[in-house]
Amino acid sequence: RLHIEVEGTELMKKLVEEAKRRNLNVRAKVENGKWIIEID
Rank of each mutant, 00 (worst) to 15 (best):
N23Y: 10
K29R: 15
L15H: 02
E18R: 08
I36R: 03
M12L: 08
M12A: 10
L11W: 12
L24S: 00
K20I: 13
W35Y: 05
I36S: 02
I37V: 08
E5D: 07
A19Q: 02
E5Q: 09
E18F: 14
I36H: 05
N23M: 10
K34A: 05
A28Y: 13
E17L: 12
G33N: 07
D40W: 15
A28K: 03
H3P: 07
V6D: 04
K34G: 03
N32A: 05
L11N: 10
L2R: 09
K20Y: 07
V6G: 08
E17W: 12
I36V: 10
N23K: 12
T9P: 09
W35F: 05
E5N: 07
N25W: 08
L24R: 02
R27P: 00
K20L: 14
V16M: 10
R27M: 06
K34M: 11
G33K: 03
G8Y: 11
R22D: 01
I37Q: 00
T9Q: 10
I4F: 13
R27D: 02
A28P: 02
R1H: 13
T9E: 14
A28M: 12
W35P: 01
E10S: 08
A19Y: 14
D40T: 13
V6S: 03
A28G: 03
G33H: 03
H3W: 14
N23A: 06
G8W: 13
W35R: 01
N25H: 13
R21F: 06
E5W: 13
I36F: 05
W35T: 02
L24N: 00
E38L: 08
L24P: 00
K13P: 01
A28S: 06
E10W: 13
L11K: 08
R21L: 07
D40Q: 09
D40L: 14
K13A: 07
T9R: 11
I4T: 05
K29W: 15
I4N: 03
E7I: 14
R21G: 04
R27K: 08
K13Y: 10
I37S: 00
E31P: 00
E31D: 06
I4D: 04
N25M: 12
K20V: 10
V6T: 06
D40V: 12
A19R: 01
R1V: 14
E38N: 05
V30K: 15
R22V: 05
D40A: 08
K34S: 05
V26H: 01
A28V: 15
R27Y: 08
E38F: 11
I36W: 03
W35V: 04
A19K: 02
A19I: 08
V16E: 03
R1E: 07
N32V: 02
V30G: 06
H3D: 06
I4L: 10
L24Y: 05
E10F: 09
K13S: 07
E5S: 11
K20S: 05
L2Q: 07
E7G: 08
N25Y: 10
A28F: 14
H3F: 14
I37P: 00
R21I: 06
L2T: 07
R22Q: 08
G33M: 03
G8E: 12
V26K: 01
T9C: 15
K20P: 00
G8Q: 11
M12F: 07
R22A: 07
L11V: 09
I37F: 02
K29A: 07
I4K: 03
K34L: 07
G33A: 02
I37L: 06
K13E: 11
K14V: 09
R27V: 10
V6R: 03
T9S: 10
L2I: 13
E5T: 12
L15E: 01
V16N: 02
L2E: 06
K13V: 09
R22F: 07
L15S: 01
A28W: 13
E38Q: 09
N23F: 13
G8F: 13
I4P: 04
L24E: 00
V16T: 03
D40P: 03
L15M: 09
E7D: 11
E5F: 11
I39P: 00
R21V: 03
H3T: 15
A28H: 04
E38R: 05
E5G: 05
K14Q: 12
L24W: 07
E31Q: 11
V30W: 15
E18A: 13
G33Q: 03
E7N: 11
E10N: 08
L24V: 03
V30R: 15
K14S: 08
T9I: 14
I36T: 04
K14P: 01
H3N: 11
R22T: 02
W35L: 07
E31R: 11
I39Q: 01
H3R: 15
V26Y: 07
I39A: 02
E17M: 12
K14R: 14
G8K: 11
N25K: 13
E10M: 10
E5L: 11
W35M: 04
N23R: 13
T9A: 13
E38P: 00
G8R: 10
V16Y: 08
A19M: 15
K29T: 13
N25R: 14
A19V: 05
K13R: 14
A19W: 11
G33F: 03
W35H: 02
K29Y: 15
G33E: 04
A19F: 15
I36P: 00
I36G: 01
I39M: 05
V26F: 08
L15N: 00
L11R: 09
R27I: 11
V6L: 06
E7K: 10
K14F: 12
A28D: 01
E18I: 12
V6N: 04
K20W: 09
R27E: 04
I4W: 11
E38D: 10
